[in-house]
Simulated assay, not measured.
Amino acid sequence: MSQLIIVGNGFDLAHGMNSSFGSFSNSISSNTKNQWLLALKKRYIDTGYDTWYNFEILIEEITRKWFVDYFDIVVKKEDINIIIEEINSINTPYSQIAKALMDYLAKEDKQYYKKLDSISKVIREDSYALNFNYTKLLKQYINSKNIHYLHGSLEEEFIVLGYKYSPRHKGMPFEARLFEKEILREVLNYRRYLSNKDLKDDIFQSRMNELYENLHTMFSGLGSIWFDYPEELDNKMMDETSNGVTKATYGYFGIPFKTKLSPNLDREMRKERLQKISLELNDYGEKNDFKPQPIKLNIELDKIEELLILGHSLEADLELIDELLYKMVNLRAIKMFVYDGENEKSIDEKIKTINKVSDIAIELVSY
């Protein structure tokens, strides 16, 4: 029976790793903490001693409130540069927090953690895993080649620490969207793409900087059409695309697609783009018509028969979980690990989340 495992922070916690935001918060420098608290205070976000470190929830709330002020200034036609500077004062401490979290977890990850018999009994070495953690602990149980780090890893020196997209963010300036998970996953995807190019460190960093300068293209919805082509090329492109564009079923785990263009026009547009962007970014963008790249898993989801959920809250990454469950058409069994004393409401919410897309009875297993 093919087995897929979804792993969240509860897995690391169950082994004794101090990987909670609460534990990490004690290691944050006073300067970074004060900058973060000041940014929250400016947006009238009231936090207590045990809520200021709910980073992923708060960064979404703080940027959303910032957008309300931004929109008000645009309507009144006031100086927009002031509010743009303010979003940078929000992004800076949050970036520092993400870096500090990596440093903190790197120390925790070096510790020895004993394997749990309860997990060893149900998990197989040839299982596939979607790991939302950044640590290497899961490698004690299954072949590392079968582990896909959806949110980056300490080894890669990049992690996805942010919030899922919401319709409430529509129209938000790109400066305020840098910590959307979908955008961070795109950055991670490109880092992985470049890592296979054997680039020198300075070239690698230059290419990453270039991506940030062009990310708004990939998330504009226009794809390759967005580039500033000469008028003649624009007219040719509009003539061809008006006769039909390749349609793609949107999905986080879908198949890349390209707009249908004649070979000659495709070559002309590529030549024009290469005067503005690097070969690496162009070739990467072409894979999906300069739209967000699907997540490549190398897992045949339609052959998965058993799903294990190890310490993931599900709600935080609901858009991915939903699509995974829909694609696992031959799923027969779901097992969800819970820890002693876990809040019943929390367990019920996870079950309800799964039941929205699957009617399979869920077996609860204790760590």
Rank of each mutant, 00 (worst) to 15 (best):
residue 34 N to Y: 05
residue 64 R to M: 09
residue 80 I to V: 15
residue 5 I to G: 01
residue 56 E to P: 06
residue 5 I to H: 03
residue 235 N to D: 12
residue 315 E to L: 10
residue 40 L to A: 11
residue 128 Y to K: 13
residue 68 V to N: 11
residue 79 D to L: 02
residue 207 R to M: 06
residue 15 H to K: 07
residue 290 F to E: 11
residue 222 L to V: 01
residue 58 L to Q: 09
residue 293 Q to R: 12
residue 277 I to T: 05
residue 297 L to C: 06
residue 95 S to R: 11
residue 133 N to G: 05
residue 157 E to L: 01
residue 243 N to K: 14
residue 225 I to T: 08
residue 290 F to M: 08
residue 260 K to W: 01
residue 256 P to W: 07
residue 247 K to Q: 12
residue 285 G to R: 08
residue 13 L to I: 15
residue 309 I to Y: 05
residue 132 F to H: 03
residue 73 I to M: 10
residue 146 N to M: 03
residue 105 L to C: 02
residue 24 F to Q: 09
residue 267 R to Y: 12
residue 41 K to E: 15
residue 198 D to T: 08
residue 38 L to D: 14
residue 360 I to L: 15
residue 51 T to Q: 11
residue 348 D to Q: 13
residue 341 G to Y: 03
residue 282 N to C: 12
residue 162 G to R: 04
residue 11 F to C: 04
residue 27 S to H: 12
residue 113 Y to V: 02
residue 215 L to Y: 05
residue 231 E to C: 01
residue 320 L to C: 04
residue 145 K to Y: 09
residue 121 K to V: 02
residue 283 D to E: 15
residue 353 T to W: 00
residue 216 H to I: 00
residue 166 S to M: 03
residue 32 T to L: 04
residue 179 F to M: 07
residue 14 A to T: 02
residue 315 E to N: 11
residue 14 A to F: 01
residue 235 N to Q: 12
residue 325 L to T: 08
residue 282 N to R: 00
residue 303 K to T: 13
residue 300 E to Y: 03
residue 225 I to E: 14
residue 224 S to M: 13
residue 348 D to F: 01
residue 58 L to Y: 09
residue 199 L to I: 04
residue 58 L to A: 11
residue 64 R to N: 11
residue 86 E to H: 06
residue 238 M to L: 13
residue 278 S to Y: 03
residue 298 N to L: 02
residue 31 N to I: 13
residue 18 N to P: 00
residue 196 N to R: 10
residue 180 E to I: 10
residue 194 L to C: 06
residue 145 K to W: 00
residue 300 E to F: 02
residue 8 G to Y: 05
residue 363 E to L: 06
residue 128 Y to I: 00
residue 22 G to V: 01
residue 188 L to N: 13
residue 179 F to I: 08
residue 160 V to R: 05
residue 64 R to E: 14
residue 14 A to R: 06
residue 151 H to W: 05
residue 140 Q to G: 06
residue 189 N to H: 12
residue 38 L to C: 07
residue 127 S to E: 07
residue 219 F to H: 08
residue 276 K to I: 09
residue 52 W to H: 04
